[in-house]
Simulated assay, not measured.
Amino acid sequence: MTPTTISAPLTPKADTRPHIVKLKVFWKTTRKWTVADVADYQASAPELAEQIRTEKYRSKGGDIHSNRFTCEDFAVRLLIQYAASKGLPIKLVDGVRTYRNMEVYGQPAHGKYDSSMYGFADMVELTYGAPDMQRINSNSISLPNVDDLRPGDILALTKDLKGQMSRRLAHHIQLVVSTSKDAINIYQGNSDDTIHRPITWINKILGRNAADPQQPPYAGLPIEIGAFYKTGMDGTIEIR
């Protein structure tokens, strides 16, 4: 992972005062990712996905809620929650900017979000979309065989009608939790119809954003469970 560059002004040699750099730390990075960490993430993904799906939390008003996520937000949250618990670094890139769990303080969002994995997740999820999960030659690959899938892998749906209309860019994200010779089991977040025009236009006029997890109009839905089943000797699959 590319380290964050911190610059400091040049001063006379006699000036020994330290240059103070203020950081926004969502969680401390204590070590780098290793092959063993990737394997542990894969092993932990099914249990962690179920934990996020079923856990409850209390809002500031005292009400009990279940987690809701759009498709990409759920996949991002699972990765963030694992990395934060292990002191591992996260770098996520979208069309707005690069997000890191430790950043030089100064972004407009830094004062808005808690210095925790939850604050980091909310900040990233505001701008990170399904197409950001499919940056060719950057963060995605095409597997030659579905049997190569592992728990924690992310499926980017591109080859259906909607994907063809968007130039084969991902429009929906699913998270693999287990595989067998017969099926690929997935968890997914999803969105309601508020992410489509003209509702998005109305929300913008009213100062609302269905992509913001901290706003009531957030479009995320409860986590769903599904599976792809192999239907033939040629490896074709169907979703149920």
Rank of each mutant, 00 (worst) to 15 (best):
181 K>A: 10
94 D>I: 10
173 I>M: 03
53 R>P: 05
23 L>N: 01
207 G>W: 00
80 I>L: 09
195 I>N: 02
206 L>M: 10
27 W>G: 09
87 G>D: 00
235 G>W: 04
138 S>C: 04
88 L>V: 02
114 D>Q: 15
68 R>L: 13
82 Y>C: 08
112 K>R: 15
88 L>A: 01
187 Y>L: 09
155 L>N: 01
48 L>C: 05
36 A>H: 12
124 V>P: 02
223 I>K: 02
118 Y>E: 14
13 K>I: 10
211 A>P: 13
170 A>F: 01
203 N>I: 15
167 R>A: 07
91 K>M: 13
35 V>E: 15
180 S>F: 03
198 P>N: 01
50 E>Y: 07
66 S>W: 08
53 R>T: 11
231 T>V: 14
94 D>N: 04
34 T>K: 07
234 D>K: 09
183 A>W: 02
238 E>A: 12
50 E>H: 06
31 R>T: 15
206 L>C: 08
83 A>W: 03
191 S>W: 09
173 I>K: 05
107 Q>D: 07
53 R>E: 12
72 E>D: 15
109 A>G: 15
46 P>E: 01
130 A>V: 05
224 E>G: 15
236 T>Y: 12
127 T>A: 05
166 S>D: 10
200 T>W: 00
15 D>N: 01
146 V>W: 14
1 M>Y: 10
47 E>N: 08
93 V>P: 10
61 G>A: 10
171 H>N: 11
55 E>M: 10
101 N>S: 05
28 K>Y: 03
209 N>W: 02
175 L>G: 07
177 V>K: 09
193 D>H: 08
152 G>H: 06
135 R>E: 14
85 S>L: 13
85 S>H: 12
161 L>P: 06
236 T>V: 11
136 I>D: 06
160 D>Q: 00
225 I>L: 09
135 R>F: 12
105 Y>I: 11
202 I>S: 00
195 I>F: 00
184 I>W: 00
238 E>I: 03
227 A>V: 03
187 Y>S: 09
144 P>I: 09
28 K>W: 07
188 Q>E: 14
107 Q>V: 14
205 I>T: 09
142 S>M: 08
125 E>T: 13
192 D>G: 01
115 S>D: 08
79 L>K: 15
215 Q>D: 07
225 I>M: 09
8 A>I: 13
75 A>L: 02
210 A>M: 07
195 I>H: 01
24 K>Y: 03
191 S>M: 12
1 M>V: 07
140 S>M: 02
80 I>G: 05
3 P>S: 00
1 M>E: 15
95 G>D: 01
80 I>E: 04
138 S>L: 08
162 K>T: 15
204 K>E: 01
196 H>L: 08
85 S>F: 12
136 I>A: 03
109 A>Y: 14
66 S>Q: 11
76 V>C: 09
156 A>H: 07
10 L>R: 15
140 S>I: 02
9 P>Q: 05
114 D>H: 08
172 H>L: 10
